[in-house]
């Protein structure tokens, strides 16, 4: 464990920079090597879907709950899916208890956009009665242990939890109020979006920054990639500036890495059996 402090050690920064310039990483990985991902799902009985994701030592837990509510007026026949994130103070000495700050909100929105813009969920199936009753899904990502790259870990956790979701079916009763029809069924998910983050120090770009790298990097960029090999959302963090070539090259790399990761994770194995 490196020392964790808001004030970055100059020594560590120089060391990491020196290594990166030689194409090496502080934890022995290659520049475009992803850490190991471990996923456990369905361990929270009271959540509709849940996932516990380890990305190296980074750990994110995600639970899906639902509610019945009214749809947005511009999409009366579509359900709603909201991603939220909590930077739990248990995860790092740097996190403090309190309302989610802008970093937490940004992370939630990046994951949210990744899911929304891939059209991964069939939102129309989440409609019970047009304009009146739809399912509202709450995807809550809880940071349990912070060792870098929470964005990617949260994106995997969110999609794994959604895949793991078993939603109770609804029917309208005589009074026109939704009622449980006695069944459970998984969500219809067409696409599995993944987020791939790159860090940038100086002019060196590398994938999946770990904690000590994340502390010293100038900036990073997160791509959401869908199964059709398309980039569906990009978020740039930090102070680094990126040239157009860098962005395009990195996008290409992101697509490659996402494909590989998707094949390796085989997230669809977490889909529950319909009851």
């Amino acid at each position: 464990m490196m020392d964790i402090n808001e004030v970055v050690s100059n020594l560590e920064k120089n060391y990491i920079l020196k290594l990166l310039k030689q194409g090496k990483r502080i934890d022995g990985r290659g520049l475009f090597e992803y850490r190991d991902v471990k996923i456990k799902t369905g361990f929270i009985p009271k959540a509709e879907g849940s996932a516990d994701v380890f990305l190296g030592d980074t750990r994110v837990m995600c639970g899906v709950k639902y509610d019945i509510g009214t749809p947005f007026s511009d999409n009366p026949d579509k359900g709603v899916c909201t991603v939220m994130s909590e930077y739990l103070p248990i995860a790092s000495p740097m996190f403090e208890p309190g309302r989610p700050d802008e970093v937490a909100i940004q992370l939630a929105r990046v994951v949210d956009r990744g899911i929304r813009h891939t059209n991964c969920i069939d939102y129309k199936k989440l409609c019970i009665k047009e304009g009146e009753y739809v399912y509202i899904l709450f995807v809550d990502c809880y940071m349990m242990d912070y060792f870098g790259n929470l964005t990617d870990a949260s994106a995997i956790a969110a999609i794994a939890a959604l895949l793991n979701t078993n939603l109770p079916g609804a029917k309208l009763n005589e009074e026109g109020v939704p009622e449980w029809d006695g069944t459970y069924s998984p969500l219809t998910i067409y696409e599995i979006p993944l987020s791939i983050s790159f860090g940038k120090v100086g002019n060196v770009i590398f994938v999946d920054p770990n904690l000590s790298e994340e502390m010293v990097l100038d900036g990073s960029i997160a791509f959401a990639v869908d199964e059709k090999k398309q980039v569906t959302s990009i978020q740039k963090y930090g102070n680094a500036t990126w040239s157009v070539e860098e962005i395009l090259d990195t996008s290409k790399k992101a697509i490659e890495i996402a494909d590989e990761l998707r094949a390796k994770l085989n997230l669809r194995q977490h889909v529950p059996q319909p009851k």
Partner: peptide, 8 residues
């Protein structure tokens, strides 16, 4: 946690 109980 928001998902620890029956109702969010």
């Amino acid at each position: 946690a928001t998902f620890s109980v029956h109702e969010r």
